[in-house]
Structures are given as structure tokens and as C-alpha cells.
Design a protein around this nucleic acid. Structure first.
Length: 416
RNA sequence: GGAGGGGUGGCAGAGCGGUCAAAUGCAACGGACUGUAAAUCCGUCGACUUUCGUCUACGAUGGUUCGAAUCCAUCCCCCUCCA
């Protein structure tokens, strides 16, 4: 199935990354020419440092860039130090609170870390490049910017952009500050084009408006065709965005989420999502993906294990992935307790309620009590029925005891 | 600047002097059933306390009242219309 001339676009298509492109034939030709001549195409992905780590929802464009690099092209990871100071109105109902300089700096570091898990950075050939748009925006003069860039935008057109239109339709306030966001992102694209010969922007489909802002600016002001390429929004079976587990985001950086929990997120994916996830979150070759996704009923669990392992490997490294997998096997299949489980140190006569609160499984003793009434808490595989129970030496083996909340949350408590 | 409407739990959204820790829906969580899946059914869903109960909470601060999410005052924020 060679729909396209370029390797990159064929991969995007067969793995389900292709949603929309500003000019698919043009982009294909550009990539093909580059692939043929051995000169890397240059494309970028931008992300604003509004948090200190990316999460699973961001992986889709990251993987696109990863493939982009694998195809011999040069990815640029842009950290939006400047745009984060404005706030992207896309998909938002409210102005975001401003971040102070310290958290901004902290977030930028976290973001760089997230990027570096998926891309190979360096100074040679098609090594990825990291840039911060603060570098070129910090000295921009307002009047000059308005005259140079502002003249290329029509407010009439801007008002029709989704990010603006929906906000107005819902009668939610939109500040002039946010209204300017698309100009900044458009300008970014052109700066990268001029500095690094960047011709493509790759992102999730929610960025479409901001991307076309850049391609239009490129055409009007610099007479250069730029390409925008977006992925579909990946949703789970119930149509919600991917990336929440127990109400919390599935973070890419390990300080925010253990590799074991990261692994478990993918291990617990719905049957209907397996094929899609294998395509998007792993590097596995397509014939393997097709084989795995055809598994049915209980066998599909094998596919889920491979998915979880491969996805964890990319993000956390092979060692971590193996450890996570081993822990999962020990815990779920052999009934013992794997080493990667969350653990907490407690006093040897600690109350059972405190133990569950301390390890973070329960937010309060009241919650722990309720769960005991519902039969949801276990100590060494036995359902806890007495909320006043205090641990004793008999509960520990080698100074450890295994506790569980529900069927999936396991932890280890250790004697002080 | 003028006139009107509004700010309630993770979200949406009732309540408009006591019976309100606050209806309902969604989300979340536990149990049953299973395959660490989905669907379904049952249950839970502010904190401390075994129960009684106590405390904190309906934008903020004061006040009226035996008693306020509910009334009054001031302030902050948002929306709509007019200038």
C-alpha cells in the first residue's frame, strides 16, 4: 500500500496518524525529494510549558515526530516559553492563570525531558533540536510586530477560527491577549523556517487553526509554502480523550508516575483499543501489529502485555519496562508482590486505616472505613473486615506485608 | 459610566430563612460477573468519630436572626444590553 511517495507519509497513514494536511501532495513531494536526496526535511512540534511533564495525550504527535526522525528527517521540539505566557485558547473556556517565572523555568525543564524520551537530540545530521520561542519573542517590539505581522492577519478571518468562534458562541470571555495567540504561533513557524529551513508543523488536530495561521503567514509574508500535518484526537472506547487513569493524568516523566503504573495504564486498555494503541504507542512493525490485534478473547491479553511493555520501553527505557512487567506478572499472575509496587514504611503496630492512608490509596480514614465496609481492602490477600485492626509481627514476612485496594491497586508496607 | 443577570461540591446544575453536608446527572471509587477488557447490576462518594455527634464548606468580609447557601451591607469577579 504505497499511497504516497514518501516513506514518512505511508507510515503515518498505515498507523493511523494521518488526520489532515494543508497540502498533502505538496508535503509528500517535499518529503520525497528530501528522502531521495538524503537531505533531511525539517519539521516541528510545539508545546507550551503549562505543566512540568507531558502526558499520554501528547504522545501522538511525539510519536509522529519520532517516525519523522526515523525516516531521516530533522525534528525540532519547540518549547513555548513565550506562548505559555499568553495561553492557547484552543479548547479552553477560560483564561489560564499566569505562571510565575520559577514554575515556568521548572516546567520548561520537565518538558525538555519529556521530549528527549521520544527523540534523539544532538548536533549532527538529523538529530533533533530543542528551541524556546521566548528566545525570539523576548525582544520583539510591539509596534514592529504589529506592522510586520499584524498586517498579514484579518480579524474577520480570525473570528471564524474555531478556538475563537466556540469561545464567543459559548459566551465565554476571551481576552485580547488570548486572541493574539495564533499570531505568535504563526510567527514561530516562520521564524523556524527562516532559521532552520523548517517547512512542516506536526501536531494534534486541535492545533489546526494555529497551524494554518503559520502556513498563511508564510505564504503572505515570505512567499513560502509551509505544511501543516495533524493527527486525529485519540479517544478511548467511550469517546473520551486518552490519558487518564484513576482520574489522574498518565505522565511521561517518571517523577510524576512510576513506570509500573505507566505499564499498567496500557495493560488495562480496552479490547477495542489494542490495535489502535499498538500502531500509535509502539514501534512494532505492522505485520506484528496486525497479528496481535487479531487475537480474541483471553488471548488478547497477550497483545496487551506486549503493548504495555513496548510503550513503556519507549518512554521509560528497556530496564524499567522489564521491571514493570516482572512486577505485574508477580503480582497478578503469581499472587506475590513485585518489587516495583508502591511501598510505605509504617510502625509495626500501625492501624490498618493509617496504613492505607499513608501509602496514598485512601485520601482519608473515612474513605478507608467505607472501603472496608464494602470489602475493598486486603491485607496479605485476605479481605480486611475490622477497621480497628492493628498490624502485628504475624502480618509481616521479612518485614513486609502486601496490601491491596480493589483488584488492581497493590502496595507493600514495610516495618519501620 | 448606566441598567439588568449571575458566582453552589471534580464538572454540569437544583435549592432561595430551619427538615441542607446541600436534589439530579456525569465523572470517580468499591463489590458481583469476567480475561488486570467491555457491558450490566448493587453500593459508596467533605473531614474527624464505631453510633450519638463535632468541625469545615455554597465568591470574600461584615451584619440581621434562636437559626443563613438562602435576608441585608460592602468588596471582588463574570455575563448581557445601553453609553
Amino acid at each position: 500500500m504505497s499511497e504516497f511517495k514518501s516513506e514518512f507519509l505511508n507510515i503515518m497513514l498505515e498507523r493511523g496518524f494521518y488526520n489532515q494536511c494543508t497540502n498533502i501532495e505538496g508535503f509528500d513531494n517535499y518529503l520525497y525529494e528530501c528522502e531521495k536526496s538524503g537531505r533531511p526535511a525539517v519539521g516541528y512540534l510545539g508545546s507550551d510549558p503549562t505543566g512540568d511533564s507531558l502526558h499520554v495525550g501528547h504522545i501522538v504527535p511525539l510519536m509522529m515526530l519520532r517516525w519523522f526522525q526515523k525516516c531521516g528527517h530533522k525534528p525540532i521540539a519547540l518549547v513555548g516559553g513565550a506562548t505559555a505566557r499568553i495561553g492557547d485558547p484552543s479548547g479552553k473556556d477560560k483564561l489560564r492563570p499566569f505562571l510565575d517565572e520559577a514554575t515556568l523555568a521548572h516546567n520548561i525543564e520537565g518538558l525538555k525531558k519529556s521530549f528527549s524520551k521520544f527523540l534523539r537530540f544532538g548536533d549532527n545530521g538529523n538529530d533533533a533540536l530543542m528551541v524556546d520561542n521566548w528566545d525570539w519573542f523576548k525582544n520583539v517590539n510591539y509596534l514592529e510586530f504589529l506592522r510586520d505581522i499584524g498586517t498579514c492577519y484579518s480579524v474577520n478571518r480570525m473570528l471564524t477560527m474555531d478556538s475563537v468562534k466556540t469561545r464567543l458562541e459559548r459566551e465565554q470571555p476571551m481576552s485580547f491577549l488570548e486572541f493574539n495567540y495564533m499570531l505568535l504561533q504563526g510567527y514561530d513557524f516562520c521564524v523556524l523556517m527562516q532559521k532552520y529551513g523548517c517547512r512542516a508543523q506536526i501536531a494534534g488536530s486541535d492545533q489546526w487553526g494555529n497551524i494554518t495561521s503559520g502556513t498563511e503567514l508564510g505564504r503572505r509574508k515570505y512567499d513560502t509554502e509551509l505544511f501543516g500535518f495533524t493527527s486525529p484526537i485519540i479517544t478511548d472506547a467511550s469517546g473520551k480523550k486518552m490519558g487518564k487513569s484513576e482520574g489522574n493524568a498518565v505522565w511521561i516523566n517518571e517523577e510524576k508516575l512510576s513506570s509500573y503504573n505507566y505499564y499498567q495504564y496500557f495493560r488495562n486498555i480496552g479490547d477495542t483499543e489494542v490495535g489502535k494503541c499498538l500502531r500509535i504507542y509502539t514501534d512494532l512493525p505492522m505485520n506484528e501489529v496486525i497479528r496481535l490485534e487479531s487475537l480474541k478473547d483471553q488471548e488478547i491479553n497477550e497483545a496487551k502485555k506486549i503493548l504495555a511493555f513496548e510503550a513503556t520501553k519507549i518512554c521509560r527505557g528497556e530496564t524499567e519496562a522489564k521491571a514493570a512487567q516482572e512486577t505485574a506478572i508477580k503480582t497478578f499472575e503469581q499472587g506475590s508482590a513485585g518489587g516495583e509496587l508502591p511501598s510505605v514504611v509504617v510502625a509495626s503496630d500501625c492501624g490498618i486505616l493509617d496504613a492505607f492512608v499513608n501509602i496514598g490509596f485512601c485520601a482519608s480514614k473515612g474513605e478507608a472505613r467505607r472501603l472496608i465496609k464494602q470489602g475493598g481492602l486486603k491485607l496479605n490477600d485476605k479481605t480486611v473486615s475490622d477497621e480497628n485492626y492493628h498490624l502485628s509481627a504475624a502480618d509481616f514476612t521479612d518485614g513486609q506485608a502486601k496490601i491491596a485496594l480493589g483488584k488492581k491497586k497493590f502496595g507493600i508496607i514495610k516495618v519501620a
